[in-house]
């Protein structure tokens, strides 16, 4: 594997392998000296065309813990806004000898274009492309679920039979798309819950059960995992729903809904949270919430992805 562009490109075996490697990386993250020499001499560029401090520092930490040379390239504004074009940026990084580029971009498919363009030879890791995908988020979410469900016996496990409900702005969510693909690969049972305005008009290619009502879904499906999605501010005044209050009332997670969850069920959120909108404080800070575990696991999973892609490249070069 050279690039990680989509959660859908991973076979079940590949996904489990990455999650297993992440277990080992998590052990490193618990040590006093949280560092491996694995990527010494490798240059990794975090190419962020869109603000995302959380994702960037998570990758940066992962890269540094693997001893890579890290460059942060924040190119605010893409060719859309007449800044430097993706092509020129990519070729510049290529000329500087980047071994891997972690790209975050507001345009769906930007990572695919970078990987297929021939502008750059290094590995491409998609750190979120528009409303398309965010595969490392899906991996860290799967890791978090597996860890909560199987604990120290997680190695080698899939998510067979786990019922996951993803709630919120499915239409615009790269997290939902990547999770859908990876969760299906790992054998989970995926449910989407959203108002019809925040679902694609044609979801026939989505291998998920769709629900409009969060309460009905909770009652009927008794999910093992509920994942709340962030409502972006730009949706709030575009008639996707009448008001934030009404959204919170019907699709927000709150103490009352928390009470309906199975005791073993977990509540996830990719962050950053709009407390009081899609999730209330009681739920977000409850024992069932995995929000902070997701952040910690993100570093381990991204270390595993970098290790998988870049050590693969080294083997290929050696042979």
């Amino acid at each position: 594997m050279k690039n990680l562009l989509s959660a859908g490109q991973l076979s079940g075996a590949q996904a489990v392998e990455i999650l297993d490697i992440a277990e080992g990386m998590a052990d490193v993250n618990d040590r006093e000296i949280k560092k491996l020499p694995t990527l010494r001499g490798k240059t990794v560029v975090n190419l962020f065309f869109e603000d995302s401090t959380r994702t960037r520092i998570s990758f940066e930490l992962a890269e540094k813990r693997l001893s890579a040379d890290v460059i942060n390239f924040t190119a605010k504004g893409s060719s859309v806004s007449k800044g430097e074009s993706l092509k020129d940026t990519a070729q510049t990084l290529e000329a500087m000898g980047a071994d891997a580029v972690v790209i975050r971009h507001s345009a769906s498919g930007a990572a695919n274009v970078l990987a297929n363009s021939g502008w750059i030879n290094g590995s491409i890791i998609n750190a979120g492309d528009g409303t398309h995908e965010h595969p490392t988020q899906a991996l860290l979410d799967a890791y978090t679920m597996r860890k909560r469900i199987h604990g120290s016996a997680s190695m080698g496990k899939t998510l067979e039979g786990v019922k996951v409900a993803i709630v919120g702005d499915i239409l615009h969510s790269r997290v939902a798309r990547s999770n859908l693909l990876l969760l299906n690969t790992l054998g989970a049972d995926v449910h989407f819950v959203a108002p019809p305005t925040l679902l694609p008009s044609d979801s026939s290619n989505f291998d998920a059960k769709l629900h409009y009502s969060l309460d009905e879904m909770l009652l009927k499906e008794q999910p093992d995992v509920v994942m709340m999605l962030r409502i972006q501010t730009e949706r709030m005044n575009a008639s996707f729903f009448p008001t934030e209050r009404e959204y919170a009332r019907y699709w927000g997670f709150n103490a009352q809904r928390l009470g309906q969850l199975k005791k073993s069920a977990i509540l996830m959120h990719p962050g950053p949270m709009n407390r009081g909108l899609e999730i209330d404080a009681v739920s977000a800070d409850s024992a069932q919430s995995t929000v902070l575990e997701q952040v910690a696991n993100g570093v381990s999973v991204r270390m595993a992805v970098l290790y998988t892609l870049l050590s693969g490249e080294r083997n290929a070069n050696a042979s």
Partner: peptide, 8 residues
């Protein structure tokens, strides 16, 4: 169905 998948 395709735009739904591609996020375009």
């Amino acid at each position: 169905a395709v735009s739904a998948e591609l996020g375009l």
